[in-house]
Design a protein around this nucleic acid. Structure first.
Length: 876
RNA sequence: GGGGUGUUAGCUCAGCUGGUUCAGAGCACCUGCCUUACAAGCAGGGGGUCACUGGUUCGAAUCCAGUACGCCCCA
């Protein structure tokens, strides 16, 4: 038989993924006899391609779902995508541009047709990529936030909340791209560091006195003075105390505006006097609201000045700036011009300088819905992992702002508000209902459908995804259907802390608002995947490896393990290809352990020499398993993997297999092979959630399996008793082995040369049963128990017992003396520190019994050790 | 500016309720091995005043306060 010495993932992965799919292992149906375990995927953008963040996130979900499936739960992982209105619309616009088509030349319907075509073509790519990773989603349940049923849910919710008074229209500042003539989301705005000019303008103080005085105001945008409605100063600024209650005149325009007082104004910045232009600056807008000031909008959509400005009407904002600076100079109203470093907001799409601009938007009230959502997290009904995010969550929820839910786009659910000819509007799920409502409310029965105009805007994508845990089970369309009743509330959600507020908090709100129940019980927050220099991975930086390349190179199992090695919950992961390499090496290690076992011939006549080794490993497995389960229960996935890793590599491969391994080309006895096969099966089980492909492959290679007997659905091990005594004894034995190896190494004794070992010990039972293990692992010849110290030997102490390796006279007495002397000093120092503790009256009376007993044991051990070392020194 | 969070080996991180032989992994490093499961490996080794300063305690990496530096969120 020849099995490659290197594990080859490529051949294996597709085979098993297809096989799992064919047999329907991923598919779930409500089963009253089983406990449901449900995860809904954080739906990736249809525009997205798999990046490292997805890899981490979905690996964790797959680990959780696979474990639950093996635990015999009805495991259901619902996949899907979200329509990502802004990103998708941008992609479609770009695609059309390449074809020479302008969005503005198309009707809404024509544009949406192109958008759907684009979605059908590219929208599923990311889900196909997840399959390469091994994600065991129930693909029959794949949903999309803009499909018919989910869109209907969005509209239903909008109408419902509007009727409840939770949705309203209001003015808000948006990022306006005058070139693209569209509003942009914050994510589409690119800040650029630039040198800007600060103009110091002289505002004449309105006073009864004859002599003109001025208040100097600094601004970077002098062309906006026509939209000024006040000048604000800090009430604590003594330079301006005399202006309290006064007013000033806008330069050139001569219009009188008040001087207002607000602590918001920074005394140090500029001249300490701030012109307030509510229509063209967000902070000014808030200031204006607070002081009940009017807003004057002087800009057209294309960035030119309108009639409101009175001056420079029709000129572009930058042209107007040049002209007004010239005019101000001539009128001697410009005190000075300063250069200063500032950040210019520009459009990602057109590069134009963004204009903050007021516009009418739709809003969803948050305060009422936030209350139960905050409580649920604070009282741990919903647990955040790690819990440090509770504080962040609370801070946000206690100061929650209303949610702007309208977007000036076409790709998305169109807002179901219908305007009447008189400008009033009605909200209804369909145009027909809207018409009925409009007739009723206006009292005008002659209104026709053609008289109504539906709001142009669409809803924010989050307004779809906040319903996700309910809508994927059709919980709006049919609130009592068997799926939603069975699977909702879901169990665990795995996502990034960046969207804790945008998404997680809102899902919790929606859960309570629409089903009166939480949407999930645990939220596992992953970190951000960064590169080795700590930079966030991004396409523009080009510092992100292509996950599919990685899978190609290292295997999906290797990549999965590599991602998890260094990703404690909530901490950023500094990705290094070394990690994935380690993951691949681990695959290879497992593969070779399997090769070893698979290669053995059985000789049925042989006795069973490995009872101790088998017993030990079984205990060791059970001990480790308790730990692994504990890690899982606390969502310490990385720790769980590490515990499995050590169990497999150190205990199973380095210790157990070395103990039972027959000499080269020798057969093995039947009992050992059977026990070892059973052990390997258990090991494969705990490995499977992390490394599904290689484990399924070995599972089938190990034995003939029945048609449905797959590892993916094999029963998860149960917690079992373990023999602490044998674990402790083996630890000592392995310690002895390690020391002997160390001595070989430091004395340059070849591994092939057998050594003898004499043991001076109180209780022979501690070593007697381990004879063959000792001699095999340390390559020993004679092992003998002795009563007296052995002359001409190197000695060492493990757990209070003394060991001697005779050196046939060629022992370096001086070096040996020095080594022992060093150890003696060290042990004496240690004893002194223990003694100090024990002689402290307050320690003895204050510390718990167990701690004191432990200190006493340390003291006794140290004293015994000192005695032994002194004896050895004397006998040298 | 407000809030959050972190600082432990060269690097990335564990260390859970303050107390198990005087702090643990992995990677990197050093030494020796191609010993037929595995060089993607084996055996062994070195490396830390737990950011700093104070406090609480019999006892602090762990709790508290302050300082310094870093990151995140909000404005």
């Amino acid at each position: 038989m020849s099995i490659s010495t290197k594990y080859n993932p490529k051949e294996v992965e597709k085979k098993w993924y297809d096989s799992w799919m064919e047999r329907g292992f991923f598919h779930s149906e409500p089963n009253p006899n089983k406990e449901p375990y449900t995860i809904v995927i954080p739906p990736p953008n249809v525009t997205g391609v798999l990046h490292m963040g997805h890899m981490l996130n979905n690996t964790i979900q797959d680990v959780l779902i696979r474990r639950a499936r093996m635990q015999g739960k009805e495991a259901c992982w619902v996949p899907g995508t979200d329509h990502a209105s802004i990103a998708t619309e941008a992609k479609v616009v770009a695609m059309l541009k390449e074809k020479g088509i302008n969005k503005s030349d198309l009707t809404r319907e024509e544009f949406l047709k192109y958008a759907w075509e684009w979605k059908e073509k590219y929208g599923g790519i990311i889900l196909e990529q997840l399959k390469k990773l091994g994600a065991s989603c129930d693909w029959d349940r794949t949903r999309f936030t803009m499909e018919e049923d989910l869109s209907a849910a969005v509209i239903e919710v909008f109408v419902d909340l509007y009727r409840k008074g939770q949705i309203y229209r209001g003015v808000r500042m948006v990022n306006w791209d005058p070139q693209g003539q569209t509003a942009l989301s914050d994510e589409e705005v690119i800040p650029k560091d630039t040198m800007a000019k600060m103009y110091h303008l002289k505002y004449e103080v309105v006073a009864d006195g004859a002599e003109k005085t001025y208040l100097t105001v600094a601004t970077s945008r002098p062309e906006t003075i026509m939209a000024d409605v006040a000048v604000a100063v800090n009430p604590n600024d003594e330079r301006y105390t005399h202006l309290h209650g006064k007013s000033v005149r806008i330069p050139l325009l001569g219009k009188e505006i008040p001087v207002i007082l607000d602590e918001y104004v920074s005394i140090e910045f500029g001249t300490g006097a701030l012109k307030v232009t509510p229509a063209h600056d967000l902070n000014d807008y808030e200031l204006g609201q607070k002081h009940r000031l009017p807003t004057i909008d002087i800009l057209n959509n294309d960035g030119t000045l309108n009639e409101q400005a009175q001056l420079y009407v029709g000129q572009d904002r930058f042209e107007a700036r040049r002209n007004i600076v010239k005019d101000l100079k001539e009128a001697d109203l410009l005190a000075k011009i300063e250069e200063y470093a500032s950040v210019l907001q520009t459009s990602e799409r057109t590069g134009a300088v963004i204009e903050p601009r007021l516009s009418m938007q739709w809003w969803c009230k948050m305060d009422k819905m936030a209350k139960p959502a905050l409580e649920a997290v604070m009282n741990d009904e919903i647990r955040l992992h790690p819990p440090k995010f509770k504080n962040m969550y609370r801070a946000w929820m206690e100061n929650v702002h209303d949610w702007c839910i309208s977007r000036q786009l076409w790709w998305g659910q169109q807002i179901p508000a219908y305007y009447l000819p008189d400008g009033s509007f009605v909200v209804a799920a369909t145009a027909e209902e809207a018409l009925k409502l409009a007739r009723k409310e206006s009292g005008n029965d002659n209104l026709q459908l053609s008289d109504l105009r539906q709001d142009e805007d669409v809803l924010d994508t989050w307004f779809s995804s906040w319903l996700w845990p309910i809508s994927v089970f059709d919980g709006f369309k049919d609130p009592d259907n068997k799926d939603v009743l069975y699977y909702y509330p879901t169990n665990d959600l795995v996502t990034a802390p960046e969207i804790l507020f945008f998404w997680v908090a809102r899902m919790i709100m929606a859960g309570y608002e629409f089903r009166n129940e939480l949407p999930f019980k645990n939220v596992y927050l992953t970190g951000i995947v960064r590169d080795a220099q700590g930079r966030k991975m991004s396409k523009s930086l080009g510092n992100s490896p292509d996950p599919l390349d990685l899978i190609d190179q290292y295997g999906a199992d290797g990549v999965r393990a590599g991602m998890l090695f260094s990703s404690p919950a909530g901490n950023d992961l500094l990705f290094d290809e070394k990690l994935v390499e380690q993951g691949r090496n681990f695959s290879n290690k497992i593969w070779n352990a399997f090769r070893l076992i698979k290669g053995w011939e059985v000789d049925e006549s042989l006795p069973f020499p490995n009872e101790v080794a088998v017993k030990w490993f079984e205990s060791r497995f059970n001990e480790a398993f308790v730990q692994i389960e504990d890690h899982f229960s606390k969502f310490r996935i990385s720790d769980a993997l590490l515990a499995v890793y050590k169990l497999v590599w150190d205990d199973f491969c380095s210790s157990y297999l070395e103990m039972i391994k027959p000499a080269y080309q020798q057969p093995i006895d039947k009992q050992t092979l059977e026990a070892t096969t059973a052990i390997l099966e258990k090991v494969l089980k705990v490995l499977h959630p992390f490394m599904p492909f290689i484990t399924e492959e070995i599972w089938h290679e190990l034995k003939e399996r029945k048609p449905k007997e797959y590892l993916i659905v094999a029963p998860w091990p149960k917690k079992d008793k373990f023999d602490k005594d044998i674990i402790e004894k083996m630890e000592n034995v392995l310690n002895v082995v390690g020391t002997v190896r160390n001595i070989r190494n430091s004395k340059n004794i070849a591994n092939s040369k057998q050594l003898d070992l004499y043991i001076k010990v109180m209780n022979q039972d501690n070593y007697e049963p381990f004879h063959s293990i000792l001699s095999k692992l340390a390559n020993l010849g004679e092992i003998r128990f002795v009563q007296e110290n052995v002359e001409g030997a190197i000695s060492f102490i493990v757990a209070g017992d003394e060991f001697f390796i005779p050196m046939e006279g060629n022992i370096d007495v001086a070096a040996e003396r020095e080594r022992l002397q060093k150890e003696l000093e060290y042990t004496k120092g240690f004893l002194a520190s223990v003694d100090k503790k024990l002689s402290n009256e307050r320690f003895v009376s204050g510390a718990p019994e167990a701690v004191i007993a432990n200190e006493r044991k340390k003291k006794a051990d140290a004293e015994a050790k000192i005695h032994a070392i002194e004896q050895s020194l004397a006998s040298l």
